[in-house]
Nucleic acid binder design. Structure first.
Lengths: 145, 145
DNA sequence: GTTGGTGCAAAATCTTTGCATCTGG
DNA sequence: CCAGATGCAAAGATTTTGCACCAAC
């Protein structure tokens, strides 16, 4: 199940003239293993070091930038001052949304989209062609209400 | 027209035990003058210095943090690595959306909301009570299409 | 073998903080 | 007056970069 992810990445990289290295593979492994976690760079660095103790933080930065460039990951901003990343999902045409609890800080996700109507309206009114979006909802989660 | 803004801030600060200083007033002036600009901290610092050459960057940081705390400004993340701020608008119950052109980098705004249905659905399905949101649309602006 | 990749440490950025001094109310 | 605010410089934190060495293809 996860092997296909790796093959995909190998393919993606090769297509653009990049190499498939141990470090890149290890970063991908961490992202797969923690796919629901919105990891920060430092989180990723620390997890990767468990298996690959010699990796440098610079490589992690460079790897994530590259993975984002080839579309394998997406950068998130959860307003806590850290860059966070999550795997992009091939079955999504648009990004899912994040629910951020302003009380406990928990971050969950909603798969629903429902922005098509709005995007169509933006095209008509503003002439702006939407290709992607990033949506964050703030509020109170079930537990905190 | 802008005097009311200042009175509002004075009021807001006083209410919470903060002082209305020249520096805070100057920062607000800059934000009012460039209300459609999504200024970075450094932009704000430089504009403020024109009138108030002795102000320190630390004061600008502290002021913006405070203004956000009392609800006078909103922090933006436009994915360029800078913290940006804009005045909050008292006539909005929800934030407007930003359209970010992935070709020329231009940032414009849409006032439409249309997320009420989605937010209601989130409450029913996830038990999450949405109080605010932040929405960014990526795509091609009129000029770049 | 080439060309791109990696690790390390230094540098560059952005932001926060300690402290002496100043100022609004 | 006095609590909060400011300016400055130093410290923190995050991210980027130069360079010699290494590894994928």
């Amino acid at each position: 199940m996860d092997g296909s992810r790796k093959d995909d990445l190998k393919e993606l990289l090769k297509k653009s003239g990049y190499k498939f290295t141990d470090q890149r593979s290890a970063v991908l492994d961490v992202l797969i293993k923690h796919k629901d976690s919105h990891l920060s760079i430092d989180d990723i660095y620390n997890y990767v070091k468990e298996r690959n103790p010699d990796i440098g933080i610079a490589t992690v930065y460079r790897t994530l930038t590259l993975l984002q460039k080839v579309g394998a990951v997406v950068k998130l901003d959860l307003d806590d001052g850290f860059s966070r990343y999550e795997l992009s999902r091939q079955d999504e045409d648009h990004r899912h949304h994040h629910l951020i609890c302003t009380n406990c800080g928990d971050v969950s996700e909603v798969e629903d989209d429902l922005l098509d109507a709005l995007e169509e309206q933006i095209l008509e009114k503003d002439g702006f062609l939407v290709t992607d979006h990033r949506v964050k909802f703030y509020g109170l989660c079930k537990k905190c209400r």
